[in-house]
Design a protein around this nucleic acid. Structure first.
Length: 228
DNA sequence: TGCCAGGCCGGGT
DNA sequence: ACCCGGCATGGC
């Protein structure tokens, strides 16, 4: 019998834990099929409208834009702010979000000639920096656009990601966005399907069990810490 | 009823 | 570099 000496790289354990969480959630809930949108542009609109807002409300706003036939780059571009604000009203912060949508349009027009096909060819870390310079686009929104609209391998962090991981003691309570993103990307393979599904599953779990007032009893992760 | 949602900005220390 | 008020509708 050979003596098996395993060097315990803490990174391996972390990776295993993250994969275990993913597998439990995937088995429990099934694939989430994110992002719920038909075009790249719809993903971008949704990413802006859902800021600090329940997706249910965003659906109404998106639905309004679609029935007006302006759920497109040109549609948003050619609609004046007043009308736009009225249509996206259900998503909340409608005046701010109107400016944000227009800011993205201006950015895409000025820098990429209004072509998302050109934008998608940009190096994604460079594009991220540029997106972060656009009014109304912060880290989560930028990363959602990169991952779900442009299929770039960038992990998206949100309030649920933070809550779930900190509650399970995988990250310190004061972890920043960048730290958490790094935590996932350094410990998981760089795979856009994994990234998309993982974030979607965390949000799904968060909505069900990990809101500000947590409901931990039936949560499929409630025993995750006692397993090895 | 009050609290919260798939954040971000700008001004103040 | 942090901290905080503002932004706003709709669901539970």
């Amino acid at each position: 019998m050979q003596l098996s000496i395993q060097i315990m790289d803490p990174k391996i354990k972390t990776r295993d834990k993250l994969l275990e969480i993913f597998n439990v959630l995937l088995k429990e809930f099934g694939p989430r099929h994110w992002w719920p949108a038909k075009t790249r542009f719809e993903v971008i609109v949704g990413a802006i409208l859902t800021q600090n807002t329940a997706w249910k409300n965003v659906e109404k706003a998106i639905s309004n834009l679609r029935s007006e036939g302006i759920l497109s780059f040109k549609g948003i571009r050619d609609t004046d702010e007043k009308e736009l604000a009225a249509l996206i009203r259900p998503s909340g912060y409608f005046n701010q979000k109107t400016k944000k949508l227009k800011s993205f349009i201006k950015f895409a027009t000025d820098v990429y000639g209004g072509s998302l096909s050109k934008m998608i060819k940009e190096d994604h870390w460079l594009l991220r920096e540029k997106l972060l310079g656009v009014y109304g686009i912060g880290k989560e929104t930028a990363d959602s656009i990169l991952l779900y609209a442009f299929d770039k391998p960038v992990f998206v962090v949100d309030i649920y990601t933070y809550r779930i991981l900190s509650r399970h003691k995988l990250i310190p309570g004061e972890s920043s966005y960048d730290y958490i993103q790094d935590f996932f990307m350094k410990n998981l393979p760089s795979d856009i399907y994994l990234y998309k599904e993982y974030h979607a599953l965390l949000v799904y779990l968060g909505n069900k069990f990990c809101r500000a007032k947590p409901v931990c009893e039936p949560c499929p992760l409630r025993h995750i810490n006692s397993k090895s």
